[in-house]
Design a protein around this nucleic acid. Structure first.
Lengths: 173, 173
DNA sequence: TGCAACCGATTGCAAAATGCAATCAGTATT
DNA sequence: AATACTGATTGCATTTTGCAATCGGTTGCA
């Protein structure tokens, strides 16, 4: 369940942590989609993850120190998953990955608008976003909160693209 | 053999290209280790890739447009694998991946010195390195060649660490 | 109090991917 | 002529994945 340690190369070890088809997708949904509960991740997954795979990866990511789990006070059976600092610092990697994918792969408009904004925003935007995530997941104070949150900005941009696409599909509206 | 297209999300599509345990390792060896031939990759692999997996991934990476294959004029049976621009632009991602791994995972000194230098060098060093790779793999002219190559710098630093480790192991030398 | 909907999973099973060892035919070296 | 090296391929056992059904417990509502 934990990593293999095929070699001490940082790229290899990173791959052993999230070099599979689901781990980074789950983290992406938590980071950009704000998902915190099992069912939220399961039903909201656009790639259609299976429940056993989700359960397995959540367990694995916890063992690796990328996530923590806590009881939801509002519901005795509900668990809240939180990102650790280790996972939050993946933001620059996800930003670069999105930027690369946008250039070379057949991405869709509505799903790549976030990557586009994140690329344009650069390191300052990533820093601000990581700060927001530390606030939401680790309870840290927001030291430099100015203007709308990165999360809200990305979400609004996504929804704007979806709306404009819907308009284009039915111009009578 | 080609990608699934589970969704048009750039992060998902990127993962479908190299979200497995070997593709990025092969590209890493080509980019940082200068490997161009099948046997070179097979025997030089510190993670110990199997020949059938290597053959499969080389084929897949070619289909995806990340690699090209050409005859080696010096040996009728030898093939030379080259990186495409698509693969060369992974350098910043590999640099970030290495930097992240160095912070959070149990990396070894000799295998992480390259990642450390690459992180310190930042975007200017990455740009210079990508320029060198375009020269070696795509035959492009080197427009801003000043000082020792990034490849040589990384290699020298790696060998220095290996040498200092060997010295520490047998101080009588 | 009943009962359907929802909670985070778990189980069984088929299919696919992986890892390993042996092997291949053609080419170069000696 | 013998040997080693080239980029692979094959067969096979093991492991991982994906899918569907299901689990025991919790919650909200009638």
């Amino acid at each position: 369940m934990s990593i293999d340690r095929r070699s001490g190369c940082p790229i290899n070890l990173s791959l052993e942590v999230f070099g599979d088809r689901w781990s980074l997708i789950i983290l992406r949904d938590m980071i950009f989609g704000g998902r915190r509960h099992f069912r939220e991740m399961l039903n909201g997954s656009i790639e259609g993850i299976a429940s056993n795979i989700l359960a397995d990866r959540l367990k694995r990511l916890m063992e690796l120190g990328m996530l923590t789990k806590a009881d939801d006070p509002s519901h005795k059976q509900k668990a809240i998953y939180s990102l650790t600092e280790m996972a939050i610092t993946l933001v620059p990697i996800l930003a670069h990955l999105g930027a690369w994918g946008r250039v070379w792969l057949p991405v869709s408009d509505e799903l790549s608008i976030r990557a586009e904004l994140l690329e344009k925003g650069g390191q300052p935007m990533w820093d601000k976003f990581m700060d927001e995530l530390r606030h939401e997941h680790l309870g840290m104070p927001l030291d430099t909160m100015s203007g709308p949150s990165v999360h809200a900005t990305l979400q609004a941009a996504y929804e704007a693209v979806v709306a404009s696409k819907a308009l284009a599909a039915s111009p009578a509206a």
